[in-house]
Amino acid sequence: MLLVEDDDDLRFGVAAALRAAGLAVDEAKDLPQADEALFVTAYDCAVFDRMLPSGDAAGYVEQRRRSGLAVPVLFLTARDALADRVEGFASGGDDYLVKPFAVPELIARVRSLCRRASVIRPPVHRVADIEIDTARRHVHRAGVLLTLTRREFSVLEVLATHADQAVPRAELIERCWDEMAAPQSNVLEVLIAQLRRKLGDPPPIHTVRGVGYRLAPDGP
């Protein structure tokens, strides 16, 4: 998910609580940073502070909705008048939480929006003899159920949505980790090696030198 908040202390505290609840969180402090993050990453949910130094997030979301933005959005705001809430929903918001708020309530609302996002995803990806059930988070190869970690499943799902195409290393990091995972570390390489072992032969994940990885069970 993406958290957009210009107050550093509030953003750090909320992000830490969301991560402690098991959610991957990217942070942005203004609309230009949010715009860049939404361009490169498909989030399950975005949380925007309404009033940012770079503008009203409601106007930004309304504009992005017209250009096809589908991610569920929750607005955080100190503006609690009925007209403000109506304006937030009319601008394309899916939920609205007034400051000060209880962090457990925010977490519950974010989880709800993330589940809503998952409903519109294709339920099953099939690449040769690999079947990825995104709703139940099950992976089968040649009919055999595999046991994958949540992160392994996320990486495989991204590769499957771009089957037989090279997926850049940076994109896999951005889609499956938050920004606390340094792209220059070998975290992705270790996970890919684990995935290859679990998926077995013939090797379905191939390294594309200088780019990233490709899921192509029928050959490199």
Rank of each mutant, 00 (worst) to 15 (best):
V86D: 06
D44K: 07
L3E: 04
V208D: 11
S154C: 13
P204D: 09
F75C: 02
F153G: 09
R196Q: 15
A181Y: 03
G219Q: 13
D26Q: 07
V158N: 01
Q194V: 00
E179W: 04
P217A: 02
E174L: 07
T77A: 04
F39V: 04
P217T: 00
L52N: 07
A24Q: 13
G68S: 06
D30W: 01
L199A: 08
A163I: 11
E87Q: 11
L82N: 03
R50N: 12
L3N: 09
V47I: 15
L113P: 06
L38Q: 07
L159C: 12
V158W: 09
C176A: 05
V25Y: 04
Q165T: 13
D30N: 15
S67C: 08
P183L: 04
A83Y: 02
L31N: 11
G22F: 01
A128C: 04
A90N: 14
H138N: 05
D133M: 05
H206K: 11
L3M: 09
A163C: 10
D35C: 00
A46V: 14
H138R: 13
R11V: 07
A128W: 03
L188D: 02
R151A: 12
V25L: 05
A15D: 05
V187G: 11
L52A: 10
V158F: 04
G22S: 06
R65N: 09
Q63A: 15
R109G: 04
G219K: 11
G92C: 09
V167S: 05
V139W: 06
P32C: 07
R79Y: 13
D8F: 14
S118L: 12
L146M: 14
F101S: 08
R121N: 10
V187F: 06
A70S: 14
P168M: 10
L215A: 04
H140A: 13
V4S: 02
D84P: 01
A90Q: 15
S154F: 06
P32A: 03
V190K: 09
R136L: 13
E131T: 15
R66P: 01
G55P: 14
L188W: 03
L23W: 10
D218A: 13
K29V: 06
E171Y: 05
L23C: 01
L156P: 05
L215G: 11
L31K: 12
L172E: 10
M51S: 09
V4E: 03
A34F: 04
L191F: 04
L195R: 12
F153R: 06
G143K: 12
L76V: 10
H125P: 01
V47E: 04
T161H: 08
S54W: 08
R137P: 00
V139H: 11
I107E: 05
L82H: 09
H138Y: 10
V103M: 15
V139S: 08
S91H: 12
P220T: 07
V47N: 03
G13F: 00
P203D: 08
K99P: 08
A142E: 07
V124K: 09
D6Q: 02
D8Q: 10
D26C: 06
C176V: 06
K99Y: 00
T77D: 03
P183F: 05
V124N: 00
D30K: 08
H125A: 09
C176K: 02
A216N: 07
N186C: 05
Q33L: 14
G200R: 00
F39Y: 12
E27C: 14
D8Y: 12
R151D: 12
H140Y: 15
A181D: 03
L159R: 12
P203E: 13
A102W: 00
T134M: 11
